[in-house]
Design a protein around this nucleic acid. Sequence first.
DNA 1: GTTGTGACATCGC
DNA 2: CGCGATGCCACAA
Length: 131
Amino acid sequence: MDERGPAYPSQEFKNQVWLIVRQIPAGQVASYGQIAAFIPPSPGMVPAFFQAFKARWAGSAMADCPEDVPWQRVINSQGMISPRPGAQNQRRLLEAEGVVFDAKQRVDLKRYGWAGPSPAWLAANGFPKRS
DNA sequence: GTTGTGACATCGC
DNA sequence: CGCGATGCCACAA
């Protein structure tokens, strides 16, 4: 669209993020970076660049997600709910699904962390195999 | 056109 | 292991 390069991860990127987030089963959580890791950079985009910002873009996508997206299951890499109005509500939703928070408001990713969509699902939805 | 900020991740102390 | 500082793009005001 502009001379700087190919399409930026805008709407298309968000759609992919939402698509993956919908696959997270109840009672499990995934980090923004992890979700974004399944999405390939736009053709021509510098990989390192994408790598550095995909997580933020993923978060940005959640801020504008449809209501059928279980956004509450996406938290940061520290296993904590990113501070923002509504965080309390998010925690409540997760606890209702069986996710347990420790005294530091953190989730044990070892236990509740989502392994990601199955290879079959990824392939069926046009995602490249994760290297 | 410029300025400020973000639903992150990572590195350093 | 925990808190603070840093990087860096896109987007809204």
